[in-house]
Nucleic acid binder design. Structure first.
Lengths: 366, 366
DNA sequence: AGGAACGTTGACAGCGCTACCAGCACAGAC
DNA sequence: GTCTGTGCTGGTAGCGCTGTCAACGTTCCT
């Protein structure tokens, strides 16, 4: 039952150099910049390293070179589906590089974020990915002073710290409401949970669209700080219905809530979309499979993470992108739940947003 | 637009020691084992460190001490909800410790796992968390020879490498089928996707339970190697229905598939549970909110990750748990989708599995 | 009183690697 | 033939920290 106790049969760079008949420093160069070696020595070191099964000691490398090959990632939640897609993108992009990911969870607290940032920065990361644009002043100062490339993800806004990739949650919400208007809906409710800054901006977009049409009423909105869930969607919708029974559509700040609303409608025998239309946000996979299928605003989460990491790595290696701010856009996906014609399963797409378009400046609203 | 260029205002341990009027080694001890210092020096070093804003250099520490404070985690997927819960547990447990998590994704490939393992081990991690019990012989040899504590998570089985925490997927599946038998169902189908080793063992459990009852038929089973999704659940169920129209229940290898089956039933106007009962696996949050509510086998995913990391940290610090193998059990949660009485929303619980019970030996079957 | 035992402290010597700079050989320019 | 430039290579000197061991003072025991 006792744990093993193997001696560390460590192969050092010096051993490799000796076997290859070169100096340690030449062997070292082989691993960092092979082109700098003559072909003869290069192959000698290569085969020596392989023969000995040499693996560089990262700690020694970091100490000697005064920099690490770690990319710090700060995200607010590990639970949220949205972030698991983003993370997958980040990890996929990092795998083919020599950088490793160091992940930390801010739990939607900008104070926690500040603390973690301080911790990260002290270890001199090669790069940093942070979520959103709502850092504390202190955090912002640290980021500005940081000696490494930084990407802000999830949304775009003014004054990027460095690079930025995301989309306008405000515009996305407005597009969703515009779609519902186009389908003839007027009394459109809003259901939101967690109310992090991005959800807040979706609410702002909803409010502005409704106000523009002269249709905004406070009692059309139900929100909570509670973390989102399907069950919560049903509960919030119940509240909303009590406040405003005459509602003809609901815009949900995310898809879990929308699914909860769908089931609550079923429970109450409310016909979708005849009596109430539903539009969600994010377009998770299941939205296309529900009955009726659920409309949503598609966001490019995997691509966001993947591109962020790729941009960051390019920047670390000295190749800064021409367009440091990238708007990945969004798309309103119309399905049965918001189709006046009840179009069976045929997902009509009403495009919006600058999908995949490079923009030099953020398309933010504030 | 150019990136910042701040000089690295670094505070070294020597500076702290000087300000505190002690030798560097004493200051060093303060950070590793404060109890070893006299109270006077302890407070002197503490305030000196705070005054200078000292942050230890982890690379130097790792190099000098020949060990890192990194816990390696190997999981097969970042997409799967199941793993996001486990991960959350791991991160939560690690946050209060001095260890940091290094995560890698094996993508359900044991060859990839072997490669990553080699990489990890070369950096002398403080501990390792690996998924499952199906490593390659080579991986197994490396794990056995590893000089650090190791926890295998997600399931339990014979011959643990070191510690192990999980539950028997085989028993869990058998319990689900027993529940369906108890409700009077006989022609019970099985729907499975991805078919990783754990899903395979659920299938094995299903097959054995059905065979025990003399009810097994090959055409009651539909599986695919494709990654799981709600849409896939609907598709697989459609295939199953074509193979065996007389089915009266379906056991789904996970909840996403179960949700897909629910919607496919709705599409085909099949009454749940009157015509077909459904039982899922994992008991994700939404299962309690669907219409009808969906039965499932509850697994303790967060706890699994959390306890695994906690056990590992204890073991790293030299306090090995008395019971290195921990069976977290499972619970069949009966809801409307498999209740003969169509009990409204009241989640009757038919217990099974050694929930939260410590067992010295794995309760595995193979 | 002598000695063992303990708690506390510091000197020394690296951990394995890379930054920096010097040096060498060779090619081409004058 | 000398000079300069280029490409490749190696020596030296740490990076910031900790393991080991010795030394010190104090207490407690016999």
């Amino acid at each position: 039952m006792g744990r093993k106790r193997t001696k560390s049969g460590k192969i050092r760079l010096a051993e490799v150099a000796e076997l290859a008949g070169v100096s340690p420093i030449t062997a070292s160069r082989f691993f960092r910049n092979p082109e700098a070696l003559s072909v003869a020595k290069r192959t000698r070191v290569e085969s020596a390293a392989k023969e000995l099964g040499y693996v560089p000691n990262l700690a020694a490398r970091a100490l000697a070179s005064q920099r690490t090959e770690v990319i710090g990632v700060l995200i607010p939640s590990l639970t949220n589906n949205v972030f698991s897609d983003v993370l997958r993108g980040i990890y996929d992009a990092s795998e083919s590089s020599r950088y490793s990911i160091q992940l930390s969870n801010t739990r939607y607290s900008i104070l926690q974020e500040e603390k973690l940032l301080r911790l990260f920065l002290a270890q001199k990361p090669a790069g940093l990915i942070v979520t959103g644009i709502d850092q504390t002043a202190e955090s912002r100062a640290m980021l500005d002073a940081a000696d490494c490339p930084i990407v802000q993800i999830m949304e775009i806004g003014p004054n990027p710290v460095d690079m930025m990739i995301g989309f306008s949650h405000y515009d996305a919400a407005r597009a969703a409401i515009a779609h519902l208007f186009a389908q003839g809906h007027r009394k459109i409710g809003f259901v939101g949970a967690r109310m992090d800054p991005r959800v807040q901006r979706r609410l702002d977009g909803y409010v502005s669209a409704m106000k523009d049409a002269g249709l905004f009423e406070q009692r059309l909105v139900v929100t909570t700080a509670t973390p989102t869930s399907v069950t919560l969607g049903a509960a919030l919708f119940t509240d909303l219905l009590a406040q405003e029974p005459g509602m003809d559509a609901v815009f949900c700040a995310n898809d879990d809530l929308a699914l909860g609303v769908l089931f609550e409608c079923r429970r109450r025998e409310i016909a979708i979309p005849e009596q109430i239309a539903i539009v969600g946000f994010n377009d998770l996979e299941f939205m296309a499979s529900t009955v009726p299928t659920l409309s949503s605003v598609r966001t490019n989460r995997y691509e966001m993470g993947n591109t962020a990491a790729a941009m960051l790595i390019e920047a670390i290696d000295g190749r800064r992108p021409q367009h440091p701010v990238l708007d990945l856009g969004f798309k309103v996906i119309e399905r049965q739940s918001s189709s006046a014609r009840r179009s069976d399963n045929r997902p009509a797409v009403s495009g919006a947003g600058a999908a995949n378009k490079l923009v030099a400046l953020p398309s933010g609203h504030d």
